[in-house]
């Protein structure tokens, strides 16, 4: 729908997301896509970007794209829990090895499984991607083996990560991302399970002394378009839209997060943080500790009537194929 206000073009898009306006997802991805559309459509498509939840909560972004409050919305699936149970496969440990890797896996899974598509069918998905994998960062406790995690209070990024942390014997703590800095600094929590991107984007490198890299979980993101808006576009415009989004945009978004992840790690290391990478031999130890989490996930999905086991096995294959 449209009000009576003048707009500069036939299709003026409101693009809304939860990340800061300075985030490369806005400056390198969304802006580039928007500019491309404006140019290719000869200015019949224009857009405005609304970062930082200026139009609605992170958890409401998807709903805003459903109702048309936003023409395009980008956010994290996990911020509206319960709605997208299947993409949480990526939140299981040891799947994605980088953001690009995770983004490829999630895009492929989406195109291969109708049940995943169905969970996004009240909007037009443009691309799905993931952040770089979550690692354990701590302030005072060094983590080398699952044994070291026992009893630590760790900020958890998602309900599934709660299970991961509990399986390791840690105490999962839920809190908004904005509270993590002060809570780490003062010791309310011992650490956090976060992508290294957050060391840079949330300045957490200032309060991090130890980093344990084991790819414990990955956060999936979506970028979707309002259906009604989508249907207003001509056939050629629609194909233009799909050309500049999809797998290509997912990989680019992944690259953005990988890049920020490297920045975050470098900043933390410059600050004196020690990095410890879980190697091939020790991974068995972690795997053993986390085995129940995989089984629970499959069981829960099957119980809801989804092909949980099938998705899980396909994801394992894709993990190797897309590396």
């Amino acid at each position: 729908s449209q009000g009576i206000a003048l707009t500069e073009s036939d299709h003026h898009l409101v693009i809304s997301h939860f990340l800061p306006g300075s985030h490369p997802i806005q400056t390198d991805i969304l802006k580039e896509i928007g500019d491309e559309w404006t140019e290719e459509s000869n200015h019949s498509i224009t857009y405005d970007l609304y970062p930082s939840n200026a139009l609605g909560n992170a958890g409401s972004q998807y709903d805003m794209a459903v109702t048309g409050e936003a023409d395009i919305a980008l956010s994290v699936h996990g911020y509206s829990p319960g709605r997208f149970s299947l993409v949480s496969i990526l939140e299981l440990p040891f799947f994605a090895e980088s953001a690009v890797h995770g983004s490829k896996i999630i895009e492929h899974l989406f195109h291969e499984f109708p049940s995943i598509q169905k969970q996004h069918d009240d909007s037009v998905p443009l691309f799905l991607f993931t952040a770089d994998p979550a690692q354990l960062v701590t302030k005072t406790k060094r983590i080398k083996s699952p044994e070291d995690v026992k009893g630590l209070r760790i900020r958890s990024p998602s309900p599934l990560a709660n299970e991961i942390l509990e399986a390791l014997g840690a105490v999962p703590v839920s809190m908004p991302m904005g509270d993590v800095y002060e809570s780490m600094e003062r010791g309310v929590i011992d650490g956090a399970m976060i992508p290294l991107e957050a060391l840079y984007n949330y300045n957490l490198h200032e309060v991090t002394n130890y980093i344990t890299i084991g790819n414990f979980s990955t956060t999936p993101f979506f970028a979707v378009m309002n259906k009604h808006k989508y249907n207003q576009f001509s056939k050629s415009e629609k194909s233009m839209i799909h050309e500049s989004t999809g797998l290509e945009a997912a990989i680019k978004s992944g690259e953005v997060f990988d890049q920020d992840g490297r920045k975050g790690r470098n900043l933390a290391e410059e600050n004196g943080a020690k990095v410890y990478e879980v190697d091939k031999i020790q991974i068995g130890e972690w795997n053993a500790a986390l085995k129940p989490v995989f089984e629970t996930w499959i069981e829960e999905m099957e119980k809801e009537g989804y092909p949980g086991r099938e998705i899980y096995h396909r994801a394992l294959e894709l993990k190797e194929e897309l590396r």
Partner: peptide
């Protein structure tokens, strides 16, 4: 319809 719940306790 979207089955939305809270994060930890999955209360609808």
């Amino acid at each position: 319809n979207a089955n939305t719940t809270t994060g930890d306790l999955t209360i609808p």
